[in-house]
């Protein structure tokens, strides 16, 4: 099992272990049909159909592998995918804030990790220098 972290009323939270949102029948890109839950590897090449997924998960092979971050940005900006985008695999509490800014909206945190720590360090900064998927303003646009 894992800890599901998602957003409710605009606040990050640890989801109920019994939540229906825990149960997805993930399909990999080859076997997926529109309307199903799609699980992507970090090296996936975009398919416009994916915008019709019920949920998309990106499976991180290691905490140091940043490919899933670029893939998330592309799903959000290139395909305009607006559904739930979930971090799977080697999700680590210290990467969450990068993932959030690349468009992830929920995370499966491995059971070995402490969800309270994860929630505590999910927003280490009030603002950032660059625009991102979740904030179109660069710091210089606010000056």
């Amino acid at each position: 099992m894992h800890h599901l972290i998602n957003k409710q009323n605009d606040a990050w939270q640890l989801a109920d272990a019994q939540s229906a949102d825990q149960q997805h029948a993930w399909c990999d890109a080859e076997n997926w049909q529109p309307g199903q839950a799609l699980k992507l590897s970090v090296d996936a090449e975009l398919d416009p159909q994916w915008a019709q997924a019920s949920i998309i998960g990106i499976d991180f092979p290691a905490l140091t592998d940043g490919r899933g971050l670029s893939l998330a940005v592309l799903l959000r900006t290139r395909l305009n995918y607006s559904g739930d985008l979930r971090g799977l695999g080697a999700v680590h509490e210290d990467i969450l804030h990068f993932m959030v800014r690349c468009g992830f909206s929920s995370f499966e945190l491995p059971e070995s990790r402490d969800p309270s720590v994860a929630l505590n360090c999910i927003t280490p900064h009030k603002q950032y220098y660059q625009s991102s998927v979740v904030d179109p303003l660069n710091h210089f646009d606010r000056v």
């Binding site: 905490l63 140091t64 592998d65 940043g66 971050l69 670029s70 940005v73 990467i95 804030h97 990068f98 993932m99 959030v100 800014r101 690349c102 900064h125 950032y128 220098y129 660059q130 991102s132 998927v133 660069n138 710091h139 210089f140």
Partner: peptide, 12 residues
């Protein structure tokens, strides 16, 4: 400024 804590490029 742009490269500081860039969300996409911290794990190259």
């Amino acid at each position: 400024q742009w490269s500081t804590a860039h969300p996409e490029f911290e794990w190259l």
